[in-house]
């Protein structure tokens, strides 16, 4: 909430705000009731539609699917961090033969749609790689390139005195980068890394296009069998919201904790980050 735009209201203003809240709430309620009536009219509120989501077999299948999604995303994120760090070091290098290829790779994979990338990898190399690696490689190329930019910004944010001090005690450029700059950059950038993990987790669902057997695939099969597309999609959305929201709360908690650990003032995270979801990418 922004307190910038209005003063604390007086008694009359508070009454007016409460009245506006009430009216909005009632309108919202009316809208919800209308939606419920519509759902009822279309036969969405009967037991058969929701039954699979309380049947142990299907619940277990969905949870296992979610586990596959999370595991795939985890592999992709770990590899992305490694690739991202390598590309960031490349872009920051003083050698043009390292800097230019890294720049081209980063800019190319950030500008190309991830779905198209995954699809192309699967169509071209699918026979050798299989679905899992086609998806993971696509995710790593994209998220690695995004993280490379995050890391680069992080390294550039470390005060220059740190580099000078490292040189002054006789470190070489590589040592200064590895021992002094990167550890501090990772620390600065940890919240951004976790928010990128949320993006990667969401993007794992793009395996849909190559029929990768993740939670979305399980959901699709349930919806085909029970003919309950709307209900299944709602359940899938709820599962992703729970996982992603928890992940972004973790980021906020970690940030506060690390703020304490380094003795820096634990800055309050901007409200936007509390809600998760990462960037639109």
């Amino acid at each position: 909430m922004s307190q910038v735009l209005f003063d604390d209201a007086g008694p009359r203003g508070r009454r007016r705000q409460r009245a506006a809240s009430l009216v909005t709430g009632l309108l919202l309620l009316a809208g919800l009731v209308l939606v419920l009536f519509k759902l009822e009219a279309e036969g969405q509120l009967v037991a058969e539609v929701w039954e699979p989501f309380v049947t142990p077999v299907f619940v277990q299948a969905l949870l296992e699917g979610m586990l596959v999604t999370i595991r795939t995303a985890a592999v992709a994120i770990v590899l992305s961090i490694a690739v991202g760090a390598a590309l960031a070091v490349g872009r920051l290098s003083i050698h043009a033969w390292l800097r230019w290829p890294s720049t081209v790779v980063v800019e190319f994979f950030r500008a190309v749609p991830l779905l198209m990338l995954i699809l192309a990898i699967y169509l071209i190399y699918g026979d050798e790689l299989g679905k899992f690696w086609s998806l993971v490689i696509g995710l790593v190329l994209y998220n690695g390139s995004v993280l490379a930019e995050v890391f680069r910004a992080g390294v550039l944010a470390v005060p220059f005195g740190q580099t000078e001090a490292a040189y002054a005690v006789g470190m070489r450029k590589g040592q200064a980068m590895r021992l002094v700059l990167l550890p501090q950059a990772v620390r600065i950038m940890l919240p951004a890394i976790i928010s990128q993990s949320v993006v990667a987790l969401k993007d794992t669902s793009l395996g849909y296009v190559i029929s990768y057997e993740d939670v979305v695939f399980t959901g699709r099969q349930i919806s085909i069998e029970f003919n309950n597309y709307f209900a299944t999609a709602l359940v899938l959305a709820a599962m992703f919201i729970v996982v992603n929201y928890s992940l972004s709360r973790l980021a906020v908690w970690l940030e506060r904790r690390m703020g304490r650990a380094t003795g820096a003032s634990a800055a309050r995270a901007p409200e936007g980050e509390l809600m998760g979801g990462g960037t639109a990418g």
Partner: peptide, 20 residues
């Protein structure tokens, strides 16, 4: 809407709306 993957949103709108 930020925490839901776009694919799931597509499933909801693309296959769910006709059901309604």
């Amino acid at each position: 809407f930020r925490n839901t993957p776009l694919v799931v949103l597509f499933l909801l709108v693309y296959f769910g709306l006709p059901e309604l």
